[in-house]
């Protein structure tokens, strides 16, 4: 019973500590962007520090005298199940947030979320405003929006894309074409939608594993692939493997 009472009283504080340490650690190491949009960084860190102060105050001030008012629910013979569930949640949270290394989403999620579907593009007016801009600063999202909204071969003929993204196969011709892709995030990784630019590079699998990060500087051409559904592709002469950037998502 004392263990159950301790667990019931302090499980929130323990989970708070796990969440706070994970959040602050990610923030200090510049990795919060793996999970949430940058607009939340300051708010998230401030609330973590306020919560940390409250946790410390709780340990310092909440005494056994509080038990005078404690509710005791014996829970019958299934009481152990409640304790087991609590421990499972605390252990799972600790492993997920603190033991496993921070990571981005992978190609497994690309397959679930309609790469370059209409859901991940810029709006038509946003895409229109890109035309005539500084093409050297365009992201994967900018180029993929222009491709999807039918800018046409003439438009792309003299353009050079300089982009970085992860490798994910084109399902319509996985042997010869892959996408250099990014996830677009509006709130957190849960709403991430994949966007990508098709790259014609036969035998790419031998050099660049799926989910590895690459940088490409290349012009656009008509897709030489017969089976791929993509009309215009990058046809790079060289592809440079690179490290995952500090902010792997685009916004």
């Amino acid at each position: 019973m004392p263990f159950r009472r301790l667990l019931r009283r302090w499980q929130g504080a323990l989970l708070s500590i796990v969440g706070i340490v994970a959040t602050v650690w990610l923030g200090v190491n510049g990795q919060l962007g793996l999970y949430i949009h940058p607009r939340y960084f300051v708010f998230t860190m401030v609330m973590a520090l306020i919560a940390a102060a409250l946790v410390v105050a709780a340990f310092a001030l909440v005494t056994a005298a509080e038990d005078e008012h404690e509710i005791l629910d014996d829970g019958g013979r299934w009481a152990w199940l409640w304790s087991a569930g609590s421990i499972l949640i605390i252990v799972s949270a600790t492993v997920g947030l603190l033991v496993l290394p921070p990571a981005t989403l992978t190609t497994a999620t690309v397959a679930k979320r309609d790469l370059n579907g209409s859901t991940s593009d810029l709006t038509q007016s946003e895409a229109d405003s890109l035309v005539g801009g500084d093409y050297s600063t365009f992201t994967v999202r900018d180029w993929s929006s222009l491709l999807r909204q039918g800018a046409g071969e003439d438009f792309f003929a003299d353009k050079t894309a300089t982009v970085t993204g992860f490798v994910t196969p084109d399902t319509s011709d996985p042997e010869n074409v892959f996408f250099v892709a990014r996830f677009v995030v509006s709130c957190c990784a849960v709403d991430a939608q994949p966007v990508g630019i098709p790259v014609y590079y036969p035998g790419w699998q031998d050099e660049y594993p799926t989910d590895s990060w690459v940088s490409i500087e290349s012009g656009f051409e008509t897709n030489p692939s017969i089976s791929s559904e993509e009309a215009i592709v990058l046809v790079p002469s060289t592809i440079t493997p690179t490290e995952q950037p500090a902010q792997p998502y685009v916004y």
């Binding site: 994970a22 959040t23 999970y35 949430i36 939340y40 998230t44 609330m47 957190c188």
Partner: peptide, 9 residues
Amino acid sequence: ISVVIESLP
């Protein structure tokens, strides 16, 4: 983790 980090604050 993304849901937790986003919702916790």
